[in-house]
Simulated assay, not measured.
Amino acid sequence: MTDRQNHSPPLSREAARALLAWQLAAGADEAVGDAPVDRLAPAAPSAPVSRPAGTGTPGDAATLPASDHGAHDPVMSARARAREATSLEELHHILEGFEGCALRFTAKSLCFADGNPEARVMFVGEAPGAEEDLQGKPFVGRAGRLLDRMLAAIGLDRTSAYITNVVYWRPPGNRTPTPQETQVCRPFIERQIELADPDVIVFLGGAAAKEMLNRSEGILKMRGKWFDYDTGRRTIRAIATLHPAYLLRQPGQKRLAWRDLVAIRKALSD
């Protein structure tokens, strides 16, 4: 074969734009690395790892420092790290250094929380989106602006509500978090709820409600009903409602969300 046969001709400007548009439509809306990587190039041989005598094998847990136990299992590691936090500030700091969730390596920001951590009501969604990833705060995009209007309808704002997500980093292309990603983050959101200790928890959308309430029903069956959420310290009243992003797609369902908001307002006035 000649060199001409070995190499494809360069794309025209129009073809390159069409390919980029197709990739964006498929959800590939950001680069994972700063430099291009030739995935077809042969892999370089890995250098052998030298270990000091007496350190044991990598799989021997007895030879690992106490802080590394469970490091091979991200969920176990997350549980251990979450238990270390004695305040929301400490939990935030631990999450900043936690590497057990692969999403942190593709996201730009950790979206820990927004609002007042001492508020009586806590809102929990599923995961950050693109605008949240840019600002490092949950619910600041279109859905967040609708949430602000929903809060205002019952006399609340971000000084009287605490807002977060089950998953703290944006999945690439706004895809749904995988079960593994959600399970790794769950010990942290459980600890966050325990430390914030609200009187009412509002789960925004079916994904957050099913995960945190261990339910299997869809959101239209769960919404508007009160559940008990046990933190281990106390039982908190919890309710599920429609996610603001869903309401943007289905504005006719806002009447259902309004009923839930009225129930939340009543619970906070008791």
Rank of each mutant, 00 (worst) to 15 (best):
R170F: 10
F123C: 09
N165R: 02
L134M: 13
V166Q: 05
A153P: 05
F123T: 09
T178L: 14
D148S: 13
R142A: 15
L156Y: 01
G155M: 00
Q135R: 15
T159N: 13
G173L: 05
M122Y: 01
T182S: 11
Y168A: 06
Y168I: 02
E181Y: 04
A119M: 01
R145F: 08
G125L: 07
T182L: 06
L151Y: 05
P171K: 06
D114A: 15
E126L: 13
Q183F: 07
G141P: 07
L147Y: 10
F139Q: 12
E118Y: 11
V166L: 14
A152S: 12
T159S: 15
R175I: 13
C111D: 12
T178E: 13
V124T: 08
F105W: 13
K137R: 15
R120A: 15
V121M: 02
P177K: 10
F112E: 10
T178V: 12
K108S: 14
G141F: 07
P117Y: 08
G136A: 06
E118H: 14
V121H: 01
A107D: 12
L156T: 01
P117W: 08
T164D: 03
F112I: 09
L134R: 15
G136C: 06
A161H: 00
A130V: 09
F139C: 12
L134G: 06
A161C: 04
P179A: 12
P128M: 03
P128E: 03
E118P: 00
P128N: 02
D133R: 06
T164E: 00
G125N: 10
M150F: 11
M150S: 08
T164Y: 01
C111I: 12
Q183N: 14
Q135W: 10
A127V: 01
C111E: 12
V124K: 08
I163A: 04
R149N: 06
L156F: 00
N165K: 00
A107T: 12
A161N: 00
T159E: 14
G141T: 08
D157I: 02
F112T: 09
Y168F: 15
G129H: 15
P171E: 06
V166A: 10
G141N: 09
Q135V: 12
T164W: 02
